[in-house]
Design a protein around this nucleic acid. Structure first.
Lengths: 238, 238
DNA sequence: TTTCCCGATATTGTTAACAAAACGGATCTC
DNA sequence: GAGATCCGTTTTGTTAACAATATCGGGAAA
């Protein structure tokens, strides 16, 4: 898949490039650590460097791109330590989110969340590709809780600033050794707390849930003091 | 004073414009809601529109500027609701920050924090302009805790993304009716918890501290068009 | 061979001009 | 007189060229 189409002519070009680039990063078309050469990408998207630079700045705000003055931009590449830091931020943010969701989510939203978990359960029961789908499903669950908290600043911090970063690294978010099944059980407990409108419990459970995911991650990737950003698929090509 | 000098020739122009514009916003030279006309500001800073637009995108990431396509940028103007949302985000983020600071702050940093509080106490004792200085001091305290948490993602979220927004609205952050004195006492308790390396307590106290500030704010700026009593948890659609 | 310096080349930073869209005011219609 | 419509102006979006900086490779000296 070389070039993204850049649809929707009415909206601004910067916007389209932004969406296309973000998509390219999250889907792995551009890999972590890849250098971003402005002329090359501009030509690829059929635009000039102006809108491209504009898009780069926005991606920088979402931590999907890092920029060093006079040296150019690269697709972000998180070390093990940074991933752990992300878990900690999520624990804080999503804990609060969940507390607010218990207070502010609409009954209909709660029911939809329950149905979502039912579908996840069916997938996990079938066992077929459970790990992978559970990854997407996990993000989906957290996404919906964020949408339900009715705090716009929190929602945007999660769904816009951090969500795509999580998507980018979801394959590293622990999905082994029966974790999907446990995660689903934790989701169920959180849902029940929200249903009971028990914000305090909902927050506690969400924090524990994310903390558990972090601990599993730390165990699986237990390189003590390796830099972390280099392993399987790697190296800025040329 | 009309024009900021744009010092430091070695660094990039975008960077300088970014700093100057941010300063102009936080100091009140540009006021919330002000329209930002690119040609005007570019001329004021003695640059072209390119670097200015670049700076605008970065300020957008820090929520200091809002941009609507084809209609231009404005200095952000937070509603009462949005300010409350900011308090909630701070409660979550700074709670975690404080927990980590208790674990990771160096002894020397803790001592400097203690000295800072001593200075604040002297100011508050003298009563002279206590409210104002306590504002800056309060931010200073929170800033240092964030610096001490040793989680770079958290630190940047607080010190870069939200700090300047808080500075912009610090005069609205409750500083009346003896709150500075109480805030100082709360700071002292937080410091003690950090000193004891008691992360759990430090987080609890910091969250309570910010929650108290929020409640005072909500009382002082009570919603004019809210019908009944204020409900902490419920929020009508906007 | 290794190291350092230097210049060719590529990439980023910046500018000014052009295109398109929004804004404001005067005029016209009802 | 109220409201809609058109047109000139202003402002934003986009482009291509120019300037400054960094990168890379080759060659000279130790």
């Amino acid at each position: 898949m070389a070039t993204n189409p850049l649809s929707e002519p009415s909206v601004t070009l910067s916007e389209q490039v932004f969406e296309a680039l973000q998509s390219a990063i999250v889907t792995g078309d551009l890999k972590p650590g890849d250098k971003i050469r402005e002329p090359e990408l501009a030509k690829r998207f059929g635009t000039s460097r102006g809108p491209l630079r504009d898009a780069l700045r926005r991606l920088e705000a979402r931590h999907l791109v890092t920029n060093t003055p006079n040296a150019g931009a690269r697709v972000v590449s998180l070390s093990r330590t940074q991933l752990i830091e992300l878990y900690q931020v999520r624990e804080a943010l999503e804990g609060m989110t969940c507390r607010l969701a218990a207070a502010n989510m609409r009954d209909s939203e709660i029911e939809e969340l329950a149905e979502l978990l039912d579908r996840h359960e069916a997938v996990v029961r079938r066992k077929a590709g459970a790990e992978y789908f559970q990854q997407e499903g996990d993000l989906d669950f957290h996404f919906r809780v964020a949408m339900g908290c009715k705090n716009d600043l929190l929602r945007s911090a999660l769904c816009e600033d951090h969500y795509h970063l999580m998507r980018l690294y979801r394959h590293k978010f622990s999905n082994r050794s029966g974790r999907p099944r446990r995660a689903l059980a934790e989701h169920r407990m959180i849902l029940e707390a929200i249903r009971d409108r028990d914000g305090e419990l909902a927050e506690l459970l969400m924090r524990r849930h994310i903390r558990n995911a972090r601990k599993t991650f730390e165990k699986v990737f237990s390189d003590p003091d390796a830099p972390g950003d280099n392993d399987d698929t790697e190296k800025a090509g040329r």
